[in-house]
């Protein structure tokens, strides 16, 4: 069964994934809305930057983040000059890294969900006296509900599964930055296969259940397009 240190790793992983997803929903929603609506000609540059973690080896991303967050990097240096700690090898550093790493998994589903709504429902709401913020929350968000569900689950699951970035910027400090995927790696390294089995199998079941619920719920939530369909 699970040892105490495995349980700690599990808790850190869940905390990391939950916090990362929350932050990503807060940042990603306005960003995705802007990407879905803006006609700025250089928008594609931002889209490419957000998509980078999809194609980069996580170690590359982790390497640059390590440098940026370390005492001599711009972010870590800033923290230090403000009297704080450099962020490399801390839980906060892990959260920052995960936000970058999982961003496309949250932003992209939201962006396509917002895009699919079109402009008409928002115009209808405007002619029914709803202010921009009002119509965003009462029309755009409910209509993009499948997108929010997908974004939340993918963001969460992807953060749970991260390895390379964590290894680079978090190190492997039990109780602070040791997450599940790294605990599994450690077990395998010292040939503790049964522990590795428990953790891996559990992670697999968890991920599978999350994906099943997304796909099932999204089928129930999907609305007919406005106007047509009889």
């Amino acid at each position: 069964m699970l040892s105490d240190s495995d349980l700690t790793a599990l808790l850190i992983t869940l905390k990391l994934a939950a916090l990362t997803t929350l932050i990503l929903l807060l940042i990603g929603t306005p960003l995705a809305w802007w990407l879905a609506r803006s006609r700025w000609r250089f928008k594609f540059l931002i889209e490419a930057v957000i998509a980078l973690p999809l194609v980069l080896p996580p170690t590359v991303l982790g390497f640059y983040l390590l440098i940026a967050l370390g005492p001599n990097g711009p972010i870590g240096g800033l923290m230090q000059s403000l009297g704080g700690q450099p962020l490399a090898f801390t839980f906060t550093g892990l959260v920052i890294g995960s936000v970058f790493y999982s961003m496309p998994f949250v932003v992209q589903p939201l962006q396509s969900a917002f895009k699919a709504i079109g402009t008409r429902p928002m115009e209808v709401a405007a002619t029914l006296r709803a202010s921009p913020l009002d119509r965003f929350f009462t029309v755009a968000v409910p209509l993009a509900r499948p997108g929010f569900l997908t974004a939340t689950v993918l963001g969460f699951a992807h953060t749970i599964g991260e390895f390379g970035v964590v290894l680079m910027i978090g190190g492997n400090i039990p109780g602070q930055t040791q997450v599940l995927s790294i605990a599994i790696y450690d077990h395998v390294e010292v040939l503790e296969y049964s522990q590795a089995h428990w953790l891996s199998g559990g992670l697999m079941v968890l991920s599978f259940l999350m994906l099943i619920s997304v796909y099932a719920l999204n089928r129930r939530f999907s609305f007919h397009n406005m106007g047509d369909s009889t």
Binding site: R120, P121, V124, A125, V139, L143, R145, F223, M226, G227
Partner: peptide, 9 residues
């Protein structure tokens, strides 16, 4: 509007 555009939710 030309199409009724009711809020589906």
């Amino acid at each position: 509007f030309q199409e009724a555009s009711l809020f589906p939710h």
